[in-house]
């Protein structure tokens, strides 16, 4: 019996889209069951959303006041208890999953498979190393539980037409009080979510200043795209950290990625390699970004962006 437990990621009572992507990877294992577990102080709304994901057999909820914020030290012992009887535990490879899953794995006494990009068999997976410059095939002993994080950019979100049963469970785990949530400072944005958006427009050092970044936002809004940035733009203070795309930021795979004023360091390219179509606009025709761009345009972004907007009508 292959049974997979997928850890749901959620915030402010809403299920994160990464969960449905982890369910897609779970489905690729062709298991006998895929259960989603929701840890929260008030899991009902999130569980109802998770129950709709196609392929989900059952949604398990653990309602405890200690679960109000996703602290790995608090969640991990509960996941370990709930994982009894499962052959696989999957979490999305977001900051939430990366924080939590290794803690779960260590408590279970196993290593973890990070960033699963393809499933070759129930115990065989492919994952990127060296900033995506090599792809390795890894095999987990068939007798061990598989703990893995799922590279969200490699998997489509499973559709939501289902109606899985929801079951409240209680887990007998002692929870630590040594780690406490203080606050979350969120970047306010009405734009599409960077990790789920079909179109992304990113700016780099070439944009020149925080004020200049407005032309990136304006162009993105015009085509309904999310906005990202290179590390150089984040370090220069043009935009907040959570907009960084790359090996150490977000790894994305939109249908269309437009890199503006980004030279294309290895670490940035890692974050966008799986995009459907990559467009590069840069005044330096020798910039490495042109090596992977499907469509390149050499020129001054301050001249090209207004022209682009004009030709879009």
């Amino acid at each position: 019996m292959t049974k997979i437990l997928v850890i749901a990621e959620h915030l402010d009572g809403k299920l994160n889209g990464s969960t449905a992507r982890a369910v897609s990877a779970a489905a690729a294992v062709k298991p006998d069951a895929i259960d989603v577990i929701v840890l929260s102080d008030a899991p009902d709304a999130v569980a109802a959303e998770a129950a709709k994901i196609d392929g989900v057999s059952k949604v398990l909820t653990v309602a405890r006041t200690e679960n109000a914020h996703s602290l790995a030290a608090v969640y991990a012992p509960q996941i370990v208890k709930a994982a009894a009887g499962y052959t696989h535990v999957f979490a999305p490879s977001t900051t939430f999953g990366k924080d939590l899953a290794p803690r779960v794995a260590a408590l279970l006494g196993v290593s973890q498979v990070s960033d699963v990009m393809s499933v070759e068999g129930p115990h065989t997976f492919k994952r990127p190393i060296y900033a995506g410059n090599a792809i390795v095939t890894v095999e987990v002993d068939a007798s061990s539980i598989v703990v893995a994080t799922i590279r969200t950019a490699s998997w489509p979100a499973a559709t939501s037409n289902g109606s899985a049963p929801i079951e409240a469970i209680s887990v007998d785990a002692t929870l630590p009080s040594h780690t406490r949530f203080v606050e979350l400072q969120q970047g306010k944005s009405d734009r599409p979510d960077l990790q789920g958006a079909p179109k992304v427009v990113s700016g780099g050092r070439g944009v020149g200043s925080k004020e200049n970044f407005d032309i990136i936002y304006k162009f993105a809004d015009k085509i309904g795209a999310a906005v990202g940035a290179s590390r150089a733009a984040v370090d220069a203070g043009y935009v907040p950290n959570e907009m960084q795309v790359g090996q150490t930021g977000k790894i994305i795979a939109p249908e269309l990625y437009i890199a503006i004023g980004i030279s294309g360091a290895i670490q940035h390219l890692t974050g966008i390699k799986d995009a459907g179509t990559i467009v590069a606009i840069n005044k330096d025709g020798e910039a490495p970004i042109f090596e992977i761009a499907d469509i390149g345009l050499v020129g001054d972004l301050f001249k090209i962006l207004p022209e682009l907007e004009a030709s879009l009508g």
């Binding site: 977001t94 939430f96 990790q195």
Partner: peptide
């Protein structure tokens, strides 16, 4: 007191 860079922004936690 640690400010963590998470997908949603900056999360502050306190750890003993």
């Amino acid at each position: 007191k640690v400010t963590r860079e998470v997908d949603a922004g900056l999360e502050v936690i306190e750890a003993d």
